[in-house]
Computed example of a mutant assay.
Amino acid sequence: MNNGSDSSATRPASRSRKPGLLLGRPFGVPVYVTSSWWIVAVLITLVYGGIVQSRLALGPSAYLLAFVFAVLLYASVLVHELAHSVVARWYGLPVRRIVLYVLGGVSEIDREAPTPGREFWIAFSGPLLSLVLAGLAFTAALFTDPFGIPGELLFQLWIANLLVGVFNLLPGLPLDGGRLLRAGVWKLTGRPYTGSVVAAWGGRVLALVVVALPFLFAWGAGSTPGPWAVVWGLVLAGFMWMGASEALNNARVRSRVPGLRARELARPAVLVPADLPLAQVDQRLHEAGADAVVVTDTQGTPLSVMHPAAAEAISGPRRAWVPVSDVSRALTRHSSVSAALEGEELLAALTGHPLPEYLVVSEDGGVFGVLRASDVNAAMAGRERA
Rank of each mutant, 00 (worst) to 15 (best):
R182M: 13
L359G: 03
Y74D: 10
W201Y: 15
V230Q: 06
S36T: 15
V305R: 04
L248M: 03
Y101V: 07
L265T: 06
T298Q: 12
L129A: 11
Q283V: 03
I98R: 05
V29N: 07
A274K: 09
E287W: 00
R252H: 14
I51Y: 07
A57F: 02
Y48C: 00
L23T: 02
V295S: 12
A212K: 07
S338A: 14
A62E: 01
V235W: 14
G92I: 02
A199D: 00
P30Y: 14
G177E: 14
Y32I: 07
G20M: 00
A9I: 00
I51P: 00
M240E: 08
S125I: 10
L347Y: 02
P258R: 10
V106P: 00
V361K: 08
D110G: 11
A310W: 08
V68P: 06
S328M: 12
R118L: 10
A212I: 05
R11L: 03
R254K: 15
A251S: 13
V235T: 07
D110N: 05
G177W: 13
V42Y: 01
D291F: 11
I159C: 09
L162A: 15
D282H: 12
A292W: 02
S255Y: 04
V68I: 15
Q156E: 12
W158I: 09
P192W: 00
L163I: 15
T298H: 08
A83G: 10
A57L: 06
A386G: 13
F138S: 04
W121Y: 12
Y193R: 13
A218H: 06
V68H: 06
L82T: 05
L142M: 14
A200K: 05
I122F: 12
Q53S: 12
F217Q: 08
W186C: 02
P19Q: 07
P26E: 05
G289C: 13
A141T: 03
G352I: 01
I51K: 02
S61F: 04
L350N: 05
